[in-house]
Design a protein around this nucleic acid. Structure first.
Length: 478
DNA sequence: TGAAATGTTGGGGCG
DNA sequence: ACGCCCCAACATTTC
């Protein structure tokens, strides 16, 4: 090769379009080595997810195949990033390493340390958020801890950076002679999951996005609470765009989503549609809010955002926790989404709130147990968003719901799965339960034998939780 | 992006 | 026609 190459390290940005760091690397005019590093340490994490790893491998394959259009390929190597990079710099003669910033505290530490460990230029770019951490601050320079004022200040100015990557074969490095382990198989990584992995590539994600913006987004405000059984084959009106896993791995950029929505918003007058678009964009803002929160307050990763409820005595109830995980609590509206989670690695937002309320408020089990379980199964499992959601539900977080806001599983069920269709889909043992009893089958004269009685009485549980939270709050010194 | 307890009002049954 | 009670229906307060 004539010029010395530059390494572009893919992480949570598995796409070629609108990839700021990649674009900057290409702009240098140096040949680019596209790299993905599989760090075996993630396997040891208590948050490791077989399903998410399977999704990631497919995403890597998609990038590799798209790179093939430019007569190049994705270099995949295993190991500690700095060791892999040292070696690759040595063998390739690369003069720089470019990547997009990952704002989680583990990644920030790792990436900062790289600057010292590598002798070449290391450059990090803001790409994964419309506004990076630090870009939305109060006038006194402090980060926001309440969503509404954050959102008010959250003012997107960036445009979609690059509509199409302009690449030519010559831009990419001649990769001959570089070690490439290739995208590993499930077998190689000992992946055990039955979750069907959805189509994963940039073109698919873009289609899904534009389809959604074209029609379904129109009714998002009202449909968002509706419980879709499966985002891929459910033909009922669905509020969910089911794009979260694509955001999680950067197959879709938030700029692409934001500006697609914005483009429609600018050309439409109907109030209800405008409201729906705003509400949908607001969910993108929530994503950014929680990423900022975890960046500014890394202690949330280890415990409560607020210490008010630190004295709270969460219950140690392994059997009940297991019943919750297995979808065997006896409350259909809790069990259905828990089964769905294990089956497809996803559940709608309303369902996440319901099952989180049940674990933390009805069972009074620590939100971190729920956080962990979600991380182990969710295809979109993201440390910041997941943590934010759980602390919100538990009442320990930023801008959290007050502790006394306790969902009644039966009323939630009647409200958001009126016909019981969602329940019957995921709980086949309740298929023949009459409509009258679908939300509370224990009231039947002879309930289905293969479905458990409620593991806890809601009314009793509610009282117990109110008391426990009150006690914890009063224990806190003024 | 709650639900339950408590309070208030007003129509209707009934003596 | 009146007073009384019951109890939806709605509103407010409380957790």
């Amino acid at each position: 090769m004539s010029k010395a190459p530059i390494i572009f390290w893919f992480r949570r940005d598995l796409r070629l379009d609108d990839n700021i760091g990649l674009h900057e690397a290409i702009k240098t005019g140096q040949p680019v080595i596209p790299l993905y590093i599989l760090d075996p340490r993630i396997r040891d994490s208590e948050w490791y997810s077989h399903a998410r790893m399977a999704f990631l491998l497919s995403a890597m394959q998609a990038v590799d195949s798209r790179l093939g259009e430019y007569n190049t390929e994705l270099i995949v190597q295993h190991g500690n990033p700095h060791e892999v990079l040292l070696e690759l710099i040595d063998t390739s003669g690369a003069t720089a390493v470019y990547f997009n910033a990952d704002y989680t505290s583990f990644a920030v530490k790792r990436d900062t340390a790289l600057q010292d460990k590598l002798s070449v230029e290391v450059k990090s770019f803001d790409d994964g958020l419309l506004i990076p951490p630090g870009g939305v601050l109060k006038d006194d320079g402090d980060p926001y801890v309440v969503y509404t004022p954050f959102k008010k200040k959250w003012n997107v100015k960036t445009k979609p950076a690059i509509s199409t990557v302009e690449m030519t074969a010559s831009v990419f490095s001649d990769l001959q002679g570089l070690q490439n382990d290739g995208v590993p198989s499930h077998q190689q990584l000992k992946i055990e999951t039955d979750i069907p992995i959805p189509p994963i590539d940039e073109a698919y994600a873009q289609d899904r996005l534009s389809d959604y913006i074209k029609t379904s987004i129109n009714t998002y405000s009202s449909a968002r609470n509706y419980l879709p059984t499966n985002p891929f084959d459910d033909d009922r009106p669905s509020g969910s765009s089911y794009l979260s896993p694509y955001f999680r791995f950067g197959i879709l950029s938030p700029r692409q989503a934001y500006w697609a929505a914005h483009g429609k918003y600018a050309n439409i007058e109907a109030k209800s549609i405008r409201d729906s678009i705003e509400t949908w964009v607001s969910e993108l803002t929530w994503r950014e809010f929680y990423m900022h929160i975890m960046y500014h307050f890394p202690h949330v990763r280890r415990g409560n955002f607020r210490d008010t409820y630190d004295p709270l005595e969460w219950r140690d109830a392994p059997d009940e926790l297991q019943a919750w995980k297995d979808g065997q609590t006896g409350y259909p509206i809790v069990d259905a989404p828990m089964r769905q989670l294990k089956a497809i690695g996803w559940m709608p937002n309303r369902a996440r709130m319901i099952v989180a309320s049940f674990l933390t408020k009805d069972l009074l089990i620590h939100w971190q147990e729920g956080e962990k379980h979600f991380m182990q199964y969710l295809l979109d499992g993201d440390p910041a968003a997941n943590n934010g959601g759980w602390q919100w539900a538990a009442g320990t977080g930023t801008d959290a719901q007050p502790y006394f806001r306790i969902f009644n599983p039966v009323s939630q069920s009647k409200k958001f799965d009126k016909d019981g269709e969602y329940i019957r889909h995921w709980l086949p043992e309740l298929e023949d339960v009459p409509q009258k009893y679908i939300h509370e089958p224990w009231k039947m004269d002879s309930p289905p034998e293969n479905y458990p009685d409620p593991i806890v009485d809601h009314k009793f549980a509610r009282e117990r939780t109110l008391e426990a939270f009150k006690k914890a709050k009063d224990a806190e010194p003024a």
